[in-house]
Design a protein around this nucleic acid. Structure first.
Lengths: 188, 188
DNA sequence: GCGTATCCACCGTCCGGGTAGTATAGTAAT
DNA sequence: ATTACTATACTACCCGGACGGTGGATACGC
């Protein structure tokens, strides 16, 4: 058995607890139980609670990064690559997966500085999106709408019907397609 | 002295603690101290911690509602009223005020069901925005971008320069203005 | 116009329960 | 011998909530 995958099992268990039972139930004992491990075993892998939460953020950031990079590489069209990757990955992978939110909430509660890996990823993407061969402000707006869907669902303020959700996604994709036509020269 | 304003002072104190020190420091004692009151006095006004957080959500929802309604009433142009109000109020009042976030985070942590007043407000606004005399999908996109700005800043994943922020706002306003021209018949 | 009863807004303390983290002793596989 | 744990016990602390006050304002009876 890949022994080091145990760490990821623990991270997943922690995420499940946060998304199903909330931050205040993220106790070391609860995580140990959910992961099918003893408290001592948990502390062997993560020396403090903060280290555990830090691991959650790193884990989700790595996954997010991987998915976006894979999408960019598989995209035959150069213009709008990053914006398209961000839209599609966020909408289809991140957004429906409640556990992504758990890391955010846990970090924000325990110590916001732990969000740094995610900040760095976003700084990177924002830069890529602004230099994606599209009008940078329009590309940024597509990014923001996408985040808006994700994050407003996190607080259950989305309040948009399932059917409209698809329409929004379609409209965003079409808009992105149209933006390709009025190409903006790459600035780098 | 308006004695019942004391409740609002307590709510503000609680918000300050959450936004400056995080959820885990939102203890009754800390709130009491920040509000310049004793713990017993605090419990007189809010019988449980949950009641306190519930008060935070209600307070911010009421403020949000008032501001949006005032904006709608002051708007001479009928088409796009609600979308414009949502954009302007969120961008200029809610978004720069960190304390608005505190209520969200506190409720999500303590008991997500406490967010109901805010859900109801959003449900209302979303309905108004979809029937604002504009193309409903485009209007929804404007709403989502606006939320995206607000909420991504909450997790510090905004990562967009100050200057670009204004550009985004301007682009959104222009877009809204352009949408007015290709009017869509009111559906109600 | 004076005593008194009630109520309001608030104070200070105490207690039971829970939690992070430490310690320690042991096990099984490599 | 080291790694990767299990199991249990213990400490030191903290927090929510209950409870029993208290001074001052207001209302009521006579």
């Amino acid at each position: 058995m890949a022994r080091h995958s145990r760490k990821i099992e623990i991270l997943d268990a922690a995420s499940r607890i946060v998304s199903q039972q909330g931050i205040f139930n993220l106790t070391l004992e609860a995580v140990a139980k959910e992961a099918g491990i003893s408290k001592g075993g948990l502390l062997y892998h993560f020396k403090t609670k903060e280290a555990l939460v830090s691991g959650m953020v790193k884990h989700l950031t790595d996954n997010y990064r991987e998915k976006i990079e894979a999408h960019v590489e598989a995209d035959p069209e150069e213009i709008g690559r990053w914006t398209r990757a961000f839209l599609n990955v966020t909408f289809n992978h991140v957004y429906p997966n409640k556990d992504w939110n758990a890391g955010l909430l846990a970090a924000k509660a325990v110590n916001p500085a732990l969000l740094k890996p995610l900040h760095d990823a976003y700084k990177d993407w924002q830069h890529k999106i602004e230099n994606d061969g599209l009008d940078p402000t329009d590309a940024t707006l597509i990014r923001l709408s996408t985040d808006g869907i994700w994050l407003s669902e996190l607080f259950d303020v989305y309040q948009i019907e399932e059917e409209k959700k698809e329409q929004v996604y379609k409209r965003l994709s079409e808009w992105l397609h149209a933006l390709q036509k009025k190409e903006v020269p790459f600035s780098e």
